[in-house]
Design a protein around this nucleic acid. Structure first.
Lengths: 121, 121, 121, 121
DNA sequence: GTGGTCTAGACCACG
DNA sequence: GTGGTCTAGACCACC
């Protein structure tokens, strides 16, 4: 549970959780078959509500990244590296399309965008 | 009022308004001194609530892009091209920093980011 | 809101809600653009919790049957009769596949199944 | 013990066990007087918990399909073919009534139901 | 022990 | 007014 929750962020807590765990699974930092901590334990460790954790877990399951076995726990899904890469790229692409439409509304060119990106990275 | 409002977007309407007008001002499509339409008229034209328009106007004023003169209307602020460019870049940078932190959480490298951007643009 | 909730049923309340409203939308008894009652009102009318209603509404949105507009309400999605028919058949088919696998485990033949169905209908 | 347990299924494991053994008994694949394996052995073979097996056995006994003789084991009950057929049909009918009520909620006619069934079988 | 459901009630953002 | 999020706490089913 290497998770950082920001209460001040504009992003809902459950979404922060979802994104960070997604990234860990898709990046191979959480292996297939790994058992996530019980929602009550995770909630306590992170200092948030059980329900908030559950909501994040539900999103993960809906995305096919974990699999819940009632009474046993929640396990990281069995995904091939290819599948992981594809899901990762879809998630990023979906977000990036929104980002680019914002940049474009300011007439930001591709070159300008790349230049700014280089500074930030 | 060349504005496109999407009811299905996840973005709040007032923010869509704010972003589009900001972009028009900073891109020179709305000249300094131009008088924005009265909020009631704008609301009617766009088919949205007066309160929503007012909120967008307030945000614009807070950003220094327009200036409200009670009883007369809202006018685009007098800004030099340099000032406009600077505000524009700040707005974009602020957003891009958030975007990049999202990409990074998926271990997306700068090169990968640029490659995906090129496809989207 | 022509809904019947059974507290004794083994089915979760939110799922009963989801299924019944799905059926009403797909069957044309709730027209496109119709505004569902506010979740608080629906909860009160049905004598259940706001959260339970919300969960059902979320499932409906996830299935593309309704569209939520924060601050305005939840509206039945614009779907062509063809789209409705397709979604309906998919929902039924998904369930029927499970049903059939149960029948088959008892060596129930297609003819026997049809015969029993005729009696029940 | 020709049993297939699915951990990914939404159905509880004990119920999967119950249904499959019921079907085997009622279909004559498990003869009257046959001694079921000890729950510990069954649990080990299937890779599930002893408690889960015990719960399935209890359900089977409650349905009159097996008979437990403490210290000796669990034996398939003595049932005439007619009795078996009747119990089988009751079990199926009970389920099918629920299934049909679901189909009917979508205004699925008997003919449509039969047509879809034929495709699935 | 685990997750699944339902409850009541609070606070915030949006229109 | 609307929905969106988060909270605490209860009860149940499953393992």
């Amino acid at each position: 549970m290497n998770i950082a929750i920001s209460n001040t962020s504009e992003k809902p807590i459950y979404q922060q959780l979802f994104e960070q765990i997604s990234a860990q699974i898709l990046g191979g930092r959480l292996d297939s078959g790994y058992c996530l901590p019980p929602i009550r334990q995770a909630a306590q460790e992170l200092g948030i509500s059980v329900i908030t954790v559950k909501k994040a877990w539900e999103e993960l399951e809906r995305s096919g990244l974990i699999h819940t076995m009632t009474g046993k726990g929640c396990f990281v899904a069995e995904l091939t590296p290819d599948q992981k890469l594809q899901i990762r790229n879809e998630m990023i692409l979906e977000q990036m399309i929104r980002d680019v439409s914002y940049y474009k509304s300011f007439d930001l060119t591709l070159d300008e965008t790349i230049e700014m990106l280089k500074k930030i990275y």
